[in-house]
Design a protein around this nucleic acid. Structure first.
Length: 126
RNA sequence: AGAGUAGGCGAGGUAGUUGCAGAUUUACUAUUACUAAGUAAAUCUGAGGAAAGUCCGGGCUCCCGAAAGACCAAACUUGCUGGAUAACUUCCAGUGCAGGCGACUGUGAGGAUAGUGCCACAGAAAAAUACCGCCUUUUUCAGUGAACAGUGAACAGUGAGCAGUAAACAGUGAAGACUGAUAACUAUUAACUGGUAACUGAUAAAUGAUUAAGGUAAGGGUGCAAAGGUGAUGGUAAGAGCUCACCAGCAGUAUCGAGAGGUACUGGCUCGGUAAACCCCGGUUGGGAGCAAGGUCGGAGGGACAAAGGUUGGUCUUUUUCCUGUCCCGUUAUUGGUGAACCGCAAGAGGUGUCUGGUAACAGGCAUCCUAGAUAGAUAACUACCCUCAAGAAAGGUGUAUAUUAUUAUUGCUUUUAUUGAGAACAGAACCCGGCUUACGUUCCGACUCUCUCU
RNA sequence: CGGGAUGUAGCGCAGCUUGGUAGCGCACUUCGUUCGGGACGAAGGGGUCGUGGGUUCAAUUCCCACCAUUCCGA
């Protein structure tokens, strides 16, 4: 399952901005970086239509095998699709995978992502 | 049946749902309009044998202005022969060597007589030396003392005589036998002959130690390795391929082979190992960067003259339509954009089938097919059926052994039926090909070798 | 995509160039010293030299392949 196109973070410039200016939350297996990027644009245009865009970063240190890395990415993406309806718009999010995550299963990712997003107050209703 | 050797096929299939990427078509959005863009729908397509490691070789692109050549340098795991290939550290066929009973496997296979270096410890010595030993000559010393002469035990030979035994023969007896007698045999001995040990006399050589000069490489506990090896009642003062036989190596000749090499004969006897130590020889090679190359892309283009300069690690030669230089002609662009765009980018040393040539690698002909193209980076999840495997169960078939005993139980193999479980291992294209290397679960397919059993 | 470096005792490092004995510091064990501990002194143990092949009489060292870690450039 892939993320819808509008919810993907694809440009390396966005990644750089998120890394340098965004907030940061950690958990044993994942790191969350997020930035409410559209503040300026919203104040100017007053149309907060830009959707939240999410990117996943996983380095070769986690595993040298591309198959393993791709599987983790797919699992995280599937978890994000479940969480997408409750995530508030306008964010740029980068999820970094840490090396112990090789042994995790889908349910772990889902639970951990939920906790991280709550901590960062990105999920609606908190 | 068991144990092996080398190799091949394949990497579950079909259908459906959801999701993602690309291509084509249609519709819509937006726009003055086009291009480009976005959204939706339909159809089609969507990882591998290694896509991996990035260890080689190429294609492709740009830079060093281009092209050709000579010499030198540099680099190269380039190094038996022949062939294949666009090329190769690849492949095929062979040769030698090594391993295996064999099928078969491995092979970094030029030169150690061009030179330099190294060979620890041990050992006399690690590449041509001489410590010991052996031999010759020589200086000095020591004690023993052969031949020869004499004496001469012992021993050997001849052996009168004496003694013992005794055949033929003679006599007696019926006969066994007895008596007599000699040849012969046995023992012993005088004597004679030879002459040993020993003793006496006398002096050289040899012997031992030692001094000096040589000869020798047979032997010496070492060592991975010791000067070709083994044998010789050949040879020598002692020895030595000094000589002979066999074996190994080298050289030459003949012959077979396309060649590496094979075989046979002859010859003189023959200087360790290490070149994955430096090196020598032969061979090959413009250098660099790499699709993040590079292009669209920009100030374009044309002509004439000059012959000074500019080239690949260096020097040099030749050619030039390149650049720089001088002059002339002449074209124009300007909404923005040098990246978050597009092209490169998927028809290729392509795949499949078949025929021909070749032992083979491979080459050629014909037919047919088009089959991923992303860029924070797509292939995943689920369902159904089939197929395969595994497990235990039921029923049937069949073989063997054991127990019991008269056809029963246990057990092996196999078939069918339904049930349950699993379908995995290594692993994901990033410009493209050819190789190499490494990783890899199960099953299947034939080929070959050895051992055992039966016919 | 290209180019390097490293791997040796529990830890940090020598040794490899020029092949033959694996060593240093801390840590560990035992003994001494001290009322006891630390420090100090003495003695001792501990090594598939990353893995697998090859060259060599002999490999931590030379050559090749692989594995892991790590750095640099675009």
């Amino acid at each position: 399952m892939g993320l819808p196109k509008e919810n993907r973070l694809r440009d390396w410039r966005d990644f750089r901005v998120v890394y340098s200016q965004g907030i940061r939350q950690q958990s044993p297996h994942l790191i969350l970086r997020a930035l409410l990027a559209s503040k300026l644009e919203r104040s100017l245009s007053k149309e907060p239509k830009e959707p939240t865009r999410i990117g996943i970063s996983i380095s070769q240190k986690v595993s040298k095998k591309a198959v393993v890395r791709n599987r983790i990415k797919r699992q995280i993406r599937a978890a994000l699709i479940e969480l997408l309806p409750v995530i508030s718009p306008g964010w740029k999010i980068v999820i970094v995978v840490r090396s112990p995550a090789v042994k995790c299963k889908y349910e772990h990712f889902l639970q951990e992502l939920k906790q991280l997003l709550e901590k960062a107050r990105i999920i609606d209703g908190y």
